[in-house]
Design a protein around this nucleic acid. Structure first.
Lengths: 326, 326
DNA sequence: GTAATAGTGTCTTTCAGACAGTATGAC
DNA sequence: GTCATACTGTCTGAAAGACACTATTAC
């Protein structure tokens, strides 16, 4: 019933996008830097003898490479395309499973091994941070994407496979010409830039479209292998999940002010949210409860809150339904 | 940096949950029946030499085993837990990647090979069909789950790992004691029944909890390997996706009546939806447009509609936001 | 007419989005 | 008092949810 045993070895790579937020800045855990200067996230080859489940394997790799114990972990996607794992023709085929993990920064950052550190997420995806308005870098990106979309010869070739034209995909992913910016489409945008050959990682892959290396604009810091793709998947998923699961609290200390909560949400979603509406949502939604304590920073002291664990038992999908306007 | 090469072979299994809806009944494509009488969905071992991508491999398996060409395909999840792939200790470890595919039934069903056929989805998950009110089988399931939840000794052991108690999980997944029924939690429910040892497939796995085989209630038809788990994942995803992507149309012919559209949605989500609100959503949401044609069945003729492909370019997440009440 | 199915019209409640203010502390 | 930050009250308009009614065909 099944074909005969394949004679190419298959390896399963596990990779973790470990996210935290430090003072309004999303950070991603990198485990090391390779010879070419590209950073790698914690990752390794799955060994069924050593690891009872995939997730256990992943946790082990993160612990071994960075010393960090993970809390929340979620599988994202399994990538298997040849040519995108930086492998040569006769090397074993690597299928990589990406994970999202959330952690609090606490004191842990201090105890990281020398190679490992947390790096700002938006350094890898500068076009994703709209907190200060439309990011400048889009002025560089847009004309290049338009040029790619206008390449009619190539367009005809791939239009058979795809329902949407290149131009339409650019418009929708990047929210131009009246299309709204959808902060969840992180992966779509990355893949589009990749296909258009504007991403350094694509150089060895999408030959015809790619610009020469020295003509490539600097579109965020590259990563090794397909790690930046996994990161894009992670952020897209996290941005989506924020809205229907109480995942933000995995990133916050046990007690926090509403302002901290809000700016953490803004940090991840990359956009401002409306302050009054946000507070109303959080309090009416009974997601948090006051501890009675207050902070003492400069300015008016803020009330401290904690996550109300009970919501999990009350409502089916408790999250922070964010509006579209800040 | 990585551990040395593992000496256990790894295999990647691909399996497809191919869904269609025939006259208000969701169907699932089974490719064959094994020696013990369990059915299997189209599946096979991924061979990197033969298949450029995972998805191409999957499409090939479905085509080879059932003759069906797939349209919409989506990756679901990668399962890797030992003991749940029905493998013995020294057999290669199988990691299985589940896919959801949607297809129209058309004439294709007629041309299926003898072993393959479409089978009603709710035959495998009888507790998921609430279109006729609360399914009777829950009267059998509930006391058994309650008993399992009341097993305090076992509870203590796993409460360290889990945030929610067994009782709370039962309550939330199955919507009892005032908790609402969430039709998307298909996998949660299946996993709970599995853990409680009430599912035939669990017999070789969760020893202590399991009832003796002959005392097991008939909780839906079993499947080979982890195929029923993949099915549960598929239906959960499909039920969720219905609400924010225009996926129903993949299951319908090019033109259809609003009643057909509604009953297809109801078939998948397993609950009734409010007729007027549904029509308002569909028409105001500009998801469909009238063709001008009409049907001639008995009763008043119905106007025919087609999917408005343009919505894909207009709105970020066009779907059929269903209410909670029918 | 009756059975069968298709297709309104409109009220109420909820909630997202927006406005512009007031409160409390450190210095 | 000034600066800085925290917090609140209330209007508006769009949808979700629910009500019951009318329309068009076959027989």
């Amino acid at each position: 019933m099944n074909p005969s045993a394949p004679d190419t070895a298959i390896e399963i790579g596990l990779a973790a996008a470990v996210v935290t937020v430090e003072r309004s800045n999303p950070q991603i855990l990198v485990a090391r830097t390779d010879e070419t200067g590209s950073v790698e996230v914690p990752s390794g080859r799955f060994d069924p003898l050593a690891h009872r489940t995939l997730e256990i394997g992943l946790r082990d790799f993160v612990a071994a490479q960075t010393g960090l114990g993970l809390g929340y972990v979620e599988q994202l996607y399994t990538f298997g395309d040849r040519g995108r794992a930086a492998g040569e023709a006769d090397m074993p085929r690597v299928v990589s499973i990406g994970y999202l993990a959330l952690t609090r920064i606490d004191g842990q950052a201090k105890t990281l091994p020398p190679e490992a550190r947390f790096r700002p997420w938006y350094g890898f995806f500068p076009w994703e941070d709209w907190r200060g308005g439309r990011p400048r870098i889009l002025d560089t990106i847009q004309p290049l994407l338009d040029e790619w979309a206008a390449d009619v010869v190539a367009e005809r070739a791939d239009s058979e496979r795809r329902a949407l034209s290149r131009a339409a995909r650019v418009r929708l992913s990047f929210g131009i010409d009246g299309a709204p910016w959808d902060e969840e489409k992180v992966l779509d945008r990355y893949e589009l830039l990749y296909e258009a050959g504007l991403i350094v990682e694509a150089l060895h892959d999408v030959r015809p479209a790619a610009l020469a290396r020295d003509k490539l604009p600097a579109l965020g810091e590259p990563m090794a292998y397909d790690h930046r793709r996994i990161l894009a998947t992670a952020m897209g998923r996290l941005r989506a999940k924020l809205k229907y699961r109480p995942v933000v609290f995995e990133l916050l200390p046990p007690t926090f002010t509403l302002t901290t909560l809000q700016s953490t949400v803004e940090a991840i979603s990359g956009r401002h949210v409306h302050k009054q509406n946000f507070r109303r949502l959080v309090e009416n939604g009974a997601l948090v409860e006051p501890t009675g304590e207050q902070t003492t920073t400069r300015g008016r002291p803020a009330a401290l809150f904690r996550f109300r664990r009970d919501v999990l038992q009350e409502r089916p999908a408790p999250g922070l339904r964010l509006g579209t306007r800040g």
